Structures are given as structure tokens and as C-alpha cells.
Computed example of a mutant assay.
Amino acid sequence: MVRWTEICKPRDQGGLGIMSSKRMNIALLTSWLWRISNGEGGLWLRIIQRKYPCGQPLAFCQRSGGSQF
């Protein structure tokens, strides 16, 4: 067995160069928050705003179950 942290290391450091799913998820969520804050959402942003109305920025809405977004 090999630790996931070892697998995610670059190949030149002895790993397999596989990107960490946790880091990738954080990067993608941050990207969505950036787009929301800049109003660059188009249709998907309007759908989310109507599905989760809370009168404040989406990043600060309380979760009622499932995904915050």
C-alpha cells in the first residue's frame, strides 16, 4: 500500500503525478465563487440563485442539506 500523498507527488519526486482530488475540488469551488462574485454565471447562476434564495451572497447562505451551492 502507498499513501495517497505519495501518489500525488510529481513524477520527478517519486510520485505518479496524479492531482489530489481534495485540492482540485477546492480549486474548482473557488473558481465558482470567483465567477459568482463577478456576476459571470449566466443561466446556471440564475438557477442557483432561485433555488437557494437567502438575501445575501451565495457563499454565506446556510446549507439546508446537500451542497452549499
Rank of each mutant, 00 (worst) to 15 (best):
M1N: 08
M1F: 09
V2L: 11
V2W: 04
V2M: 10
V2E: 12
W4G: 04
W4R: 12
W4V: 11
W4D: 05
W4K: 11
T5V: 08
T5W: 04
T5I: 00
E6S: 13
E6T: 15
E6H: 14
E6W: 11
I7G: 04
I7K: 12
C8S: 11
C8V: 02
C8Y: 03
K9C: 02
K9G: 01
P10Q: 04
P10S: 03
R11L: 09
R11S: 10
R11T: 12
R11G: 06
R11Q: 13
Q13D: 06
Q13V: 05
Q13C: 07
G14I: 03
G14H: 03
G14R: 03
G15Q: 02
G15P: 00
L16T: 11
L16W: 09
L16Q: 08
L16V: 05
L16E: 06
G17V: 02
G17R: 01
I18G: 02
M19L: 14
M19D: 08
S21P: 06
S21K: 08
S21C: 07
K22A: 15
K22H: 10
R23C: 11
M24E: 13
M24W: 06
M24L: 13
N25C: 05
N25Y: 01
I26V: 14
I26D: 09
A27F: 07
L28M: 12
L28V: 13
L28G: 01
L28H: 07
L29M: 14
T30E: 12
S31C: 14
S31F: 12
S31W: 09
W32G: 03
W32K: 07
L33V: 05
L33C: 07
L33I: 04
W34L: 08
W34T: 11
R35M: 11
R35D: 06
R35K: 14
I36D: 14
S37E: 15
N38L: 15
G39I: 01
G39N: 10
G39V: 01
G39S: 06
E40H: 08
G41Q: 03
G42W: 03
L43G: 02
W44D: 09
L45N: 01
L45P: 01
R46A: 14
I47T: 09
I47M: 14
I48A: 12
I48T: 10
Q49Y: 02
R50W: 12
R50G: 15
K51I: 04
C54N: 09
Q56C: 06
Q56T: 04
Q56M: 13
Q56F: 01
P57W: 01
P57S: 05
P57M: 01
L58M: 13
A59C: 11
A59M: 09
A59W: 02
A59V: 06
F60P: 00
F60S: 06
F60T: 08
F60C: 01
C61T: 03
C61G: 03
C61A: 07
Q62V: 06
Q62P: 05
R63I: 05
S64H: 08
S64K: 13
S64E: 11
G65H: 03
G65E: 05
G65M: 00
G66I: 04
S67M: 06
S67T: 09
Q68D: 07
Q68H: 09
Q68F: 05
Q68A: 14
F69L: 15
F69V: 05
